[in-house]
Simulated scan of single mutants.
Amino acid sequence: MQRSTLKAWFLVHKWTSLVCTLFLLLLCVTGLPLVFWEEISHLTGAEAEVAPAPPGMQAANVDDLVTKALAQYPGDVPLFFGWDDHSPSVYVNTGARPDTPPPEMHTAVMHQYTGEVLPVAQFNEGVMYFLYRLHTDVFVGLPGMLFLGAMALLFAVAIVSGLVLYGPFMRKLSFGTLRTGRSRRLAWLDLHNVLGIVTLGWAFVVGITGAINTLAQPLEQAWQSEQLGEFARRYEGRPRPERLASLDAAIATARAAEPGMTPAFVSFPGTGYSGDHHYGVFMHGDTPLTERLYRPVLIDAETGELTARPQLPGYMTTLLLSQPLHFGDYGGLPLKFLWALLDLLTIAVLVSGLYLWFKRGSTDTRIAEIERSGLPENGLAHARNAGAAS
Rank of each mutant, 00 (worst) to 15 (best):
T214F: 02
A216K: 09
E220Y: 03
A222I: 14
W223K: 07
Q224I: 00
L228A: 06
G229M: 04
E230V: 14
F231H: 04
A232K: 08
R234V: 08
Y235F: 03
G237K: 04
R240T: 13
E242G: 12
R243F: 01
R243C: 02
L244K: 11
L244M: 12
D248E: 12
A250E: 08
A250V: 13
I251L: 09
T253K: 15
T253P: 11
T253N: 12
A257N: 12
E258Q: 15
E258K: 15
P259D: 15
F265S: 10
F265G: 02
V266S: 08
V266D: 04
S267P: 15
G270I: 11
G272W: 08
S274P: 02
S274N: 11
S274Y: 08
G275Y: 01
D276R: 11
D276Y: 08
H277G: 12
T287D: 06
P288D: 04
P288Y: 05
E291Y: 02
E291G: 05
R292E: 14
L293T: 03
R295P: 07
R295E: 11
V297D: 05
A301Y: 09
A301L: 11
E302K: 09
T303K: 09
A308Y: 00
R309N: 07
Q311P: 05
M316A: 03
M316N: 08
